[in-house]
Design a binder for these strands. Structure first.
Length: 291
DNA sequence: TGACAGGGGGTGT
DNA sequence: ACACCCCCTGTC
């Protein structure tokens, strides 16, 4: 596989707020689950990456992983197309996180994870989705039950589908430490159950239409909609504005006092077609240099 | 080791 | 502007 990253950038990609289902073992190996896939990733050198998967699914996981990590050889071209030549702060962010990239996660799973995200930090979001998977998601078919028993490890589960979530009570969701997010997820599941094909249509609709449709869902506002489109649908024009981006734009672009919607519009205009990638660099830099 | 605030990557009213 | 829900974290 094409070496995707350098240094600590792998952690920023897997555990920096795009995805919530990667865990780092004490040995430094990352284990992640998405859709029916499970993979282990290890940084072997400054820019080398090693992966493994259960033997039965290794060929499928290899293909899925290349797509998921956005690791095609031309992935770097996207970053080069950003206006770093005329934007000193962006250039600085890009230099600090060489090889940073946007994941291509399953659309429905991304929606579920970001419905869990409001006013929560990464550790807590990971805890919620882990409970959702464990209690309401199907066990991964590929895992070797005997090996699990020997290691005394619990089975890994995929996240529940929206069809599965539609059959889970709100109180059962609340028991997954979701707080007020349980109602949002419950009502979104009912909404989707009543509208077959709604998600598929939304995933493939033009950006503006897809964003409007997502905002119809309970608990989805402009920020969450943009995260779902950016991390779960490959829409690089999406520019999620959270408190970190608000802070970054205030500090480095002299836009203090601007409202999130204005910042989003500015971001798309200033950074161009791949504004969402620029957002990810700014976000990573701001979070690393938090006060 | 344990109790106790404080605040959190947003949305909806 | 404020409630929503409650878990993590820092502090005593």
């Amino acid at each position: 596989m094409q070496p995707p990253v350098e240094g600590g950038v792998l952690a920023e990609i897997l555990d920096g707020g795009q995805a919530f289902r990667w865990l780092r073992g004490t040995d430094g190996i990352w284990t992640g689950v998405w859709a029916g896939n499970i993979a282990r990733l290890r940084q072997t050198s400054a820019s080398g990456l090693q992966w493994s998967a259960p033997a039965a699914l290794a060929p499928a996981v290899r293909a899925a992983l290349v797509h998921y990590l956005n690791a095609a050889p031309d992935a770097g071209d996207l970053a080069d197309a950003l206006p770093w030549r005329s934007d000193d702060h962006l250039a600085r962010c890009m230099a600090a996180f060489p090889g940073l990239r946007l994941l291509r996660q399953p659309f429905g799973e991304t929606l579920l994870c970001f419905l869990c995200s409001p006013t929560k930090q990464i550790v807590q979001i990971k805890q919620m989705v882990a409970l959702l998977a464990e209690r309401h998601g199907a066990p991964l078919a590929s895992e070797d039950a005997d090996a699990r028993a020997r290691n005394d490890q619990p089975a890994r589960h995929r996240l529940p589908t929206w069809g599965e979530l539609a059959r889970v009570s709100e109180s059962a969701l609340r028991a997954c430490r979701l707080g007020f997010r349980a109602g949002h997820i419950h009502r979104t599941a009912q909404f989707l159950a009543d509208r077959p094909g709604w998600m598929e249509h939304t995933e493939t609709a033009p950006y503006a239409e897809a964003r409007e449709r997502l905002c119809l869902l309970p608990g989805v506002g402009e920020k969450v909609a943009d995260c779902v489109l950016l991390f779960g649908a490959g829409r690089l024009e999406a520019f999620p504005v959270d408190v970190w981006i608000l802070r970054a734009m205030s500090r480095h672009y002299h836009l203090s006092g601007w409202k999130p919607a204005q910042i989003a519009q500015f971001g798309r205009a200033h950074f161009g077609r791949f504004a969402g990638l620029a957002q990810q660099y700014l976000f990573a830099w701001e979070r690393q240099n938090r006060v």
